[in-house]
Write a protein that binds this DNA or RNA. Structure first.
Lengths: 182, 182
DNA sequence: TCCTTCGTTGAACGGCTGTTCATTGAACGA
DNA sequence: TCGTTCAATGAACAGCCGTTCAACGAAGGA
């Protein structure tokens, strides 16, 4: 294994461990030492690669663009439900890391705010109503609440329910919020 | 001022400061020293009164029973919207402290879980549908998402919108989730 | 008035944190 | 083969944390 490969491999291992720990424990309770241990690496190395705990977190939290969101409200709702179902099937480690840390770490909210605002703006543009902004924010809040309830608060009924059932129950709810029900 | 009065007054001041700081910063980032400073008191006194940071948090987080929730789904939805509007008018410090810390502090979830589960059970009993449990959990998740979005994530559109507008947009959403729309 | 009670303080403790830095040793280029 | 590069280590630093404890000083009872 070449030197560059080892380097990339180690860096990836640290990032994966950091994402998992940030998601599980939040920003404050995740220590550089724990990340290093989980990655099988020396704490100093984490600092050497990422400079600081803050920058390590930002590398994990970098908002990956999640595809465009356009078309008629009906289609947008289905797209949102699909994404929700997908993030329910497997544990969405990065999203959870961002979500949990946004509630823990002062800087995390600001770091993710720009991407989230662009997301809501995109969503709002697909809505016909005059109060599209508030509606888009409510849709975001509802989806965040559901992911939060299932993965972080671990509400039993939500954790045990199949994704399709949740999506089906949520459909009319989102259709009314987006104005897709006329 | 009598000695017992001073004692109660100081204790109340510490509890109020703790509630505010737990809500603002979560469990981990709230220090005993900061609570003591905000209450104008010596850190040692906080320990002397409450024993530990954990017990101080539990005193703040003790679930205050929030009235019964019964009757027809339509009425329950209106009751929920009323409570939501009320918690939007003023900053619900204690609720936020619990909510934020549930996401920060391992023990906080468990501490609040019992009360929250009883709340969802009560809500589920008022719903006629066979999948009342999942529906009740989804209603909780939606309401948590909205409070979270407004007070913790500070989504601009949600923070600036008047409570009545949010309640109005949420009404059909909650009616469909509770099965109040037939 | 004197002694007790107790709210309150200040200093200190060990432990864990993020971060730094000199050092090692194996992969590399010549 | 030899010197350089650089991934990786281990020990150490200062700072903040929760927590402890001896001590002070004013309120309360006799």
């Amino acid at each position: 294994m070449t030197r560059a490969e080892r380097r990339r491999s180690t860096e990836a291992r640290i990032l994966a461990a950091a994402a998992r720990l940030f998601a599980e424990s939040g920003y404050a309770d995740t220590t550089i030492r724990a990340v290093a241990a989980a990655a099988g690496v020396n704490p100093g190395l984490v600092m050497h690669y990422f400079g600081s705990k803050e920058e390590l977190f930002l590398r994990v939290a970098r908002a990956r663009p999640s595809g465009p969101l356009e078309g008629e409200p009906e289609g947008v709702v289905e797209e949102l439900l699909d994404r929700l179902a997908a993030s329910m099937a497997d544990e969405p480690v990065e999203s959870l890391a961002v979500l949990r840390s946004m509630l823990t770490h002062p800087g995390a909210s600001e770091a993710a705010a720009e991407g989230a605002a662009r997301y809501r703006a995109q969503l709002a543009e697909a809505l016909p109503a005059a109060d599209a902004g508030v509606r888009a924010a409510l849709v975001s809040a509802v989806l965040i609440g559901v992911v939060l309830g299932r993965h972080l608060l671990k509400l039993e009924e939500l954790r045990d329910a199949p994704p399709e059932q949740i999506a089906a129950l949520l459909r009319p709810c989102l259709r009314s919020l987006t104005g897709a029900d006329g």
